[in-house]
Amino acid sequence: MNADQALLAYVSRLGDNALILGQRMVELVAAYPELEEELANANFALDFIGQARMFYTYAGEIEGNGRGEDDFAFLRDENEFRNFLLIEQPNGHFGDSITKLVLFESFYLLQLEALTKCADTRIAEISARAEKEIRYHLRHNTQWFLRLGDGTEESHQRVQGSLDNLWPYTGEMFAADEIDGIFAEFFDGPHLEAIHAQWMTNVELIISQATLDMPEDQWMASGGKQGRHSEHLGFMIAEMQYLQRTHPGATW
């Protein structure tokens, strides 16, 4: 794999994480109990979809075959999506959604901070914008994580369950592969070991503030970054792509 191929793969992965998470959040629209959270969720989902569009557009330009954002989103198969397994997990209850967002965004914020300093100016620009958005999301979602953890006995139990269930999907975020390696080396990209250490410190603090127990060291799932997904992604993509697949070549 050469540097350009790694760059393309890296950028489209960023797009995949943003889109798949945004799509999961979109599933929750009009189902929130409180209007304020309805607005927050829609707002955050819009940020993710916006980020996906910017990353995919850039990926299409790097590739140079005339593919645009919608080709990446709607005309690729499941195994071409390289998002984390964590992100494609079904929404579950409110505590599951919040925990998923806290775990992912704690990573993503660090990743974006590093990317603002990378050698690729376009990625640096997109990341600078995304970083501001995610910093705000994470503050909001962390507040909820604390409320649920240190709320009632029921909420405490529920969110501890969310944390335990989702934890095995966190390891993949820090497992560097060839793409991460080349991107770090040639584009001054993030070093995942350093990010992992910082993430662990931050997340441990949030978990203890939420009066929750840290999950034990354990086996970690992997495969999303290489296109080997859980059964959940296929349905999600089938739904998302349905119109484009049913009416090939139509414009909307």
Partner: peptide, 8 residues
Amino acid sequence: LTRAPSLK
């Protein structure tokens, strides 16, 4: 929303 035909 989940089936909108383009990202835009």
